[in-house]
Structures are given as C-alpha cells and as structure tokens.
Design a protein around this nucleic acid. Sequence first.
DNA 1: AGAGTGATTTGATAGCTTTCTAATCATTCT
DNA 2: AGAATGATTAGAAAGCTATCAAATCACTCT
Lengths: 176, 176
Amino acid sequence: MNQNLALLKLLADETRLDILNILFREDSYVEKIACELSLTPATICYHLKKMESAGVVNCSRSQFYIIYSLNREIFNQPLYELIKKDEPMVAPEEKYKNEVLSHFFRYGRLTQIPTQRKKREIVLREIAKQFEQGKMYDEKEVNEIIHRYHEDHCTIRREMIACGILSREKETYWLN
Amino acid sequence: MNQNLALLKLLADETRLDILNILFREDSYVEKIACELSLTPATICYHLKKMESAGVVNCSRSQFYIIYSLNREIFNQPLYELIKKDEPMVAPEEKYKNEVLSHFFRYGRLTQIPTQRKKREIVLREIAKQFEQGKMYDEKEVNEIIHRYHEDHCTIRREMIACGILSREKETYWLN
DNA sequence: AGAGTGATTTGATAGCTTTCTAATCATTCT
DNA sequence: AGAATGATTAGAAAGCTATCAAATCACTCT
C-alpha cells in the first residue's frame, strides 16, 4: 500500500490522535497513557505498535518502562504532500498543451475557438486526430467530423487549411 | 465528532484519494470519474457526497452534468494543525515553566537538581506546592515531603531556604 | 408531455478495525 | 532463582465502511 495512505489511515482514529497529543506534550509509556485515556494497556500497545511500524513514533527501554516518543518531522509537511500522487513526468510543452486543451474543451466539445494563434493550432491539431492519414474526404464528411466538436465547422475547416493541417484540391480534402 | 478527525477519516481512503487527485487536475463529474477509476457511479457518488458534506469539495450543475470541484485551501495547512487539539492558551512564561518542569520531572520524581538558578527556582517552587500555607513543620516532616521527589532532601531543603521559599526558626519550618 | 441521460438513494454483503480478556514474554529487584 | 511489574500477543466480539445492483430522482431536449 501507498506510504502516504498508510499514514493517513493511522491518523484517522480518535484514540491514536489522543495518544499523539499526549506524546506531543511529553514522552510517555503504555500504562501511563492507558490510564490517562481510560483504556486497557493492550489497546494502547496495539496502537503504538501500529504507529511504530509506520515510523510515526519511536520507542526505547528505560529501566522499567518502554518510553515512546514522537517522530516530529512527519507533522510539518502540508496536507497536499500526503494526497497528491506523483503524476507521471510530462515535458513542459506537453503540460502546456494539456492546459490549453482542458481549457478549451469541456465534455468533449470545443467551447470557443482560441484567438491566439499558438493555442488555436493546438486545438485544431487535437480535432485533426479524427482524420485518417492518407484518406480522402469530401466537404460534407469534413464538416460532419468537425461538427462533433463545434457549431462553426466552416471557420474551423478554413483555419485548418490555413495552418497546413488539412489540404484541399477542388472538392477533396486530406490530412497532411 | 471533532472536525479535524472527520477530515482525516475522509482522506484515509484510497478511492477518495484517487478522486481528489483527479479533481486536483481538473473539475469533473460522477460518470467521468467512475469511468476513470473503473468503479460504479453509485460508489463515486457516495464518496463525493461524503466529501461535500465535510466541505472538501463543492458541486454545481452545468447543463447535463453536476460538476465537482476542490476546495483547495483545506490542503495547505500542515499536518499538525489537524492533529493537535487546542490546548488551553498559556502565557509564554507559563509555557517555559512547563518545559522546565517536564524536563526535570519524570514520572513524578525530580531526575536532577538544575544548576541554573532560574530553572532551580521553578523546580523548587513546584515541590513547595506540597507544603500548606501557614502550617508549621519540623525537620523530619520537611524531609519526608521532599524525599518523595528526590533522594537529596538536605540540599533541596537548604536551597528552598536560600530562595526564600521556606523559612526556618530553630527546629521549625514554614512556607513564606 | 415524454424520452433520454446523468445523479442519487436504498438495501445487502463482505471485509476491515477497534477493543477487550486472558495468556505469555521480558526485565528488574530481592 | 523467583516474584513483581510492565509490555506484548492471540483470539473473539462488535461495529463500521466501501462497494454494488436496482430503483428512483432531476434535469434537458425534442
């Protein structure tokens, strides 16, 4: 299991939070904590062992007692560190492209045609993925495909040709 | 139940972490998330509603879909904010005093007599709480009380008088 | 109005977790 | 060595939670 998830599971228990609060205050040992929280030593031991194996607390014997103490560094990290999964590394330009796409596409439709040339090209190339390499299309077919993404298929078709994504000869279109 | 505990319980679930990671990336809706995680919409809905009632996510209808989005501020707080129970506010000097006491007392006994005067006085005044205001004690009684805290009752008794905590006349001692 | 689509609720099940008692282990002191 | 004390483990009971299928609800579009 994921390390962070394991830590969150540990923290999501009232008894363990009580124990941690005691240990924030001072180091302590099983019987003392049990007494303070009105639970049996077996229960406290169960929780402490669990936290120990996750590295949240440490223990060391001292005379009669086994003293438990906090591993305080753990608690300084902000919450999102525990939640965010490492996304697969993507190149910055890839990332930018994704941002643009997620901005202009909603639920599979183009919400508006970007006015900035760079963004517009990214969007057009995304739509162009629906065309097959080497296949010939007539205008009706082209419009039909583009129409899945946006009302204004005329503008988009024209822009695709202007960008050099699509070529046209007479009534026939194809992907470059 | 405690608000923080409720939040931690929410976060301690793999499916909910997956959902949060999706929402970190972009707003989304039940069916899309269900598809992405290979779970049923009912299950996703169950989790989202749970998180919504804890204020972790918000939702609003947009056309066909009900769009869920993150309440991002929550994730900026450091972990200890969620764990520490609010201790009753204490003045800084009170806090220092507690630190000294918890350093020199272990399991109700004085582990060593502080050499620094300031710390020694704090420790002595703590022990002095065992004496009653206005009551007269003979030397044997004084030693007995101090002995509960430390072997060397002679030194401590002497220091208490030097600090002006205890007064002595002939064989009789009393609290100032 | 009603067909279509996505969201939510309900009820049931399976698996996990906390807690306890009782037994056992480990250390210290006599 | 053995008595005393604190820590840990084992086993069992009770409660909680995630998940799903099926039914119902809510909104949009024709």
